[in-house]
Design a protein around this nucleic acid. Structure first.
Lengths: 144, 144
DNA sequence: CTTGAAGCTATAGCTACTAGAGACCTTACA
DNA sequence: TGTAAGGTCTCTAGTAGCTATAGCTTCAAG
């Protein structure tokens, strides 16, 4: 049996975050010790690790909730989980594309920024001029 | 003179967001019409475009505030702006690396997810197992 | 048996917006 | 000149996903 601190350490999740996940119903209420402290078994660790990795993959908590409900009822079709994963993959690809363009923009900004005064510095100028925009700059509004 | 709606359209920023930026002091209070509606000149458009692009580049509002204060006093050294941009570049690079690893993970998940029941589906298994983690998975905690 | 770390609840705060209510202004057209 | 549509006004509250604080209790080591 793990205390909340040990569980958090094992899963790489901060203690208040675990309590938050319990509060919003992502984690079930655990057993308590005689002194009212939470005690977790291995299944809680698995579940929390699942949540953590899904968060790192960019899944919103609602999607994670869906995925967990699938695993809680394992006779359902896999198609639903597959749909969620594919949707996330699309979003991840879009983010990579956008960040790559932004990286180029930042690099150009830094290259143009001589070590003079701000008056000579193009960082600000570059950022206020639309004509410098990278292509995908306007097709954004995605889940950030 | 632009109304707030035209300004938002020109800069690609929603109207409530402009009012929000004014509220937190990123934009100065503009002139008003006889009927108390905001009226903006070109300098407001430049400033808002700057903010928008900086946001898209991933700068937090605090960093943008710093950059704006630099451009408001253009005799200062450019070094500060350069430092901010470089810091952002590092963060952007890290995010790209992480997302690329995550993309591979999702692709493998989808490939492994046969169209059977969840019991056969490895989506959840992959996500709860640390040993499947990509390398940089643990070096995160970055600005998301 | 004491001390210090870890845990408890509850509430408030954070970033960067977004949405809604209900009133007012502006403009285009008849 | 009237009116109707749609833009704008202020204000408040809500969103996601946590994080921080206060003030208390419990646990484990020495």
């Amino acid at each position: 049996m793990l205390t909340i601190g040990k569980l958090g350490e094992a899963a790489g999740v901060k203690v208040p975050t675990i309590r938050y996940y319990e509060q919003i119903g992502l984690l079930p209420e655990p057993e308590r010790s005689a002194g009212n402290q939470r005690l977790y078994g291995d299944s809680a660790l698995d579940r929390l690790a699942f949540i953590r990795h899904a968060r790192e993959l960019g899944f919103p908590l609602d999607a994670i909730r869906d995925l967990l409900s699938l695993s809680d009822e394992p006779d359902q079709s896999c198609a639903a989980a597959d749909v969620i994963a594919k949707k996330q993959l699309t979003a991840v690809k879009a983010r990579i594309a956008r960040l790559t363009a932004l990286k180029a923009e930042l690099e150009r900004m830094i290259a143009q920024c001589a070590q003079g005064t701000v008056a000579d510095c193009r960082v600000i100028e570059v950022l206020s001029d639309h004509s410098h925009c990278a292509q995908d700059h306007r097709t954004s509004g995605a889940a950030e």
